[in-house]
Design a protein around this nucleic acid. Structure first.
Lengths: 140, 140
DNA sequence: CCGGATCCCATACGATACTG
DNA sequence: CAGTATCGTATGGGATCCGG
């Protein structure tokens, strides 16, 4: 914060000569991470697992409205990226526990910074959305 | 960073009693912001505008592969959230200049933190993706 | 130069039913 | 308990053409 529009670290300061090549952009690690976390459930799952390890149905109960299908897919995707860890205990009936990996926990830090920004500027954003659709004449 | 898995600020530390209500979650400012930035082009547009103001076709040339439709939609959405500012100059032919609002610039800071994380852990993530699909027996 | 309107596809997501 | 399979719908996004 501090300065009104201080220099932003990397990202903005690094130069780019020509246009951004499309295929290079598709593989950009930054966009990649944001898009992966930007789906409907991933963030919430990460946050819940950041509090403590959960079993499958614990998550299913705590996340109101998620379908089994999406919970499974979300967990699998996170597991594939080594952000969450899946442990099967051979009890009967079997129980599966999900927890954050160190990598997953480290991701929660910058995510939390973003969350703080969102909360701080929540009212400003909300106010913007409720503007009278910008007159002119028809529906914009 | 520092500690391997230090406590993460807000987000994780605030308690939640019961399951997360679905409609409340839909309006969660944090998820809202992440999803808004998590589409295909928004982040790149924000970064480019973070460097300097751009005209419409400047952006179109710099962002290889974006369609006019999506560039316009992306800019409109950002404008609606007061993250970018649109100025029309009554020249002939008309020219339009886009720039970040103070709010938009402030968003770039937490976003940049996330970007740094992505770059730092790029290799680890990439390595995870290339695992031999996790044996067991069938195709998982 | 800066878009809007239209069509069309791929994917995200939800609902439901079934299984080891 | 912890999933998989199948379906249908909603949305994101590209291509193309049209207009002030």
């Amino acid at each position: 914060m501090s300065g009104t529009h201080a220099d932003v670290p990397t990202l903005v300061s690094t130069p780019l000569p020509g246009p951004v090549p499309s295929d290079e952009y598709d593989r950009c690690p930054v966009t990649d991470v944001i898009r992966r976390v930007g789906d409907k459930w991933t963030l919430l799952v990460l946050v819940l697992l950041g509090r403590r390890a959960h079993r499958y149905n614990e998550l299913h109960r705590e996340i109101d409205g998620i379908s089994q299908r999406m919970l499974t897919r979300t967990l699998r995707a996170l597991e594939d990226d080594l952000l969450v860890c899946r442990e099967v205990f051979p009890t009967v009936p079997p129980s599966v526990e999900y927890s954050l990996t160190p990598l997953g926990r480290s991701l929660l830090e910058p995510l939390s910074a973003l969350a703080d920004w969102a909360v701080e500027n929540e009212t400003e954003i909300a106010a913007a959305r409720h503007r009278p659709t910008l007159e002119t004449k028809n529906a914009r």
